[in-house]
Design a protein around this nucleic acid. Structure first.
Lengths: 159, 159
DNA sequence: TCACAATCATTGGTGCTCCCAACGATTCGT
DNA sequence: ACGAATCGTTGGGAGCACCAATGATTGTGA
C-alpha cells in the first residue's frame, strides 16, 4: 500500500472479498514481521508446528498435514535443516522416504515463533472486544470449513 | 501413511491470523477464477474501477488511489493498454506525466469484471446468513480501518 | 536566475505463498 | 513379474506487495 492521499476511493472497497483479503494482508504482514525477527517465515513455523504435533514423518506426509506443497517442502526442510532445526534421515524401511524430525534447537525456535505469533494475534485483533473476537473467529471458521470442504482439501490416504 | 488421520492438525489452525489468511486465500482464488474467465487479474480490475471512479489521471495518482505500487502500475497499464482497455497519453502540461484514461472497451470489461465479482461475493459468503454477512463485513471493516490508520499513513501530498 | 529538491515513469530486482509438470528411484498391487 | 502408485527433487510460473535507482522534468527558494 502506498499513499491514499486522494480521498477514500469507493465501491469495491466495501466488498467482502476486498475487506477480507486486505485485512489478511495486514495479518500476514504482522505475522511475517514477527517471524522475521527470528529469521523465519510462515512455512517454517507450519512445518515445525506440524512436526511437534504429529511427530517425525516423511516429507510427503508432512506436506499433507501442514498444507505445504510437497515441492515447497523440499526447500523448507533444506532451510530448516541447514540451521539444525530439523533433521532429515533416510527411512530404513522405505528407501524412497526421508524421515524428518524436530531437533532440540527446532523446538526452541518453535517456542520463539509461538511467542511472536501470540503477540501478533493481539495486535491483529486490537480493535475488537473479547466477544467480537470470538464471533470473528467463529464466522471465519464457518467460511473456511465450507470452502475447505468444497475444494476437497483433505485427500483420503488410501493404501 | 499408517495414520489415516491426516486431517486438520491443531493449535495453529485455530489462530485468527490463520483463519483469516486461509479464508482470504479461498476468497482470492474465487475472485481470481472469476477474473481469469475474462483474462484479467486483480490489478486490472482495481485500475479500471479507479479510473471510472475518479476519471483520467497520471500513473502516480492512480497508484495512490488504487493502492497499486507505482512500479506495478507500469506493467498493469501496459497490459491493459495492449488490449485497448485503457489509453496512455502524454500530459501536455507536464511532460513527466502520462494521462491514463478508460476506453469504451475498458468500460465494457469493467462491467464484466463487476459481474463476476458480484457472483463471487455470494459464493464466498454462501454459508453465512444475511445478518452474519453484515456482522462479518463490519468486523472486517473495523480491523481494516484500524490497521490502515496504523500502517497506511496517508500523508498529504505537498500541493 | 540558478541550483537543489521533488515528482514522474520506468527498469529490474526481492520475498512469500500457492501451484504445476516431469523425472528417476523405489515400492506396492495383482 | 509388471504396471501402477508413491517419494523426493528440480525447475519452473502466477499473483500480490514492495524497494532502489535512474533520467527526465518541474517546482522552489535564495
Amino acid at each position: 500500500m502506498e499513499n491514499p492521499s486522494d480521498k477514500p476511493p469507493a465501491g469495491w472497497e466495501s466488498l467482502p472479498s476486498w475487506l477480507l483479503t486486505q485485512t489478511a494482508n495486514h495479518a500476514h504482514r504482522l505475522v511475517a514481521d514477527g517471524f522475521s525477527s527470528v529469521s523465519a517465515r510462515g512455512y517454517h513455523y507450519r512445518l515445525l508446528a506440524t512436526l511437534e504435533e504429529f511427530g517425525p514423518a516423511s516429507q510427503a506426509t508432512l506436506g499433507r498435514r501442514s498444507g505445504i506443497h510437497v515441492s515447497d517442502m523440499v526447500a523448507t526442510i533444506n532451510e530448516l535443516a541447514e540451521r539444525n532445526l530439523v533433521e532429515r534421515a533416510p527411512d530404513p524401511s522405505d528407501r524412497r522416504r526421508n524421515i524428518i524430525s524436530l531437533t532440540p534447537e527446532g523446538e526452541l525456535q518453535l517456542r520463539r515463533l509461538e511467542k511472536r505469533l501470540a503477540e501478533t494475534q493481539d495486535e491483529l485483533l486490537a480493535p475488537l472486544s473479547s466477544e467480537d473476537r470470538e464471533r470473528f473467529a467463529e464466522l471465519l471458521s464457518r467460511l473456511l470449513d465450507h470452502h475447505n470442504r468444497r475444494t476437497g482439501t483433505s485427500e483420503e490416504p488410501r493404501h
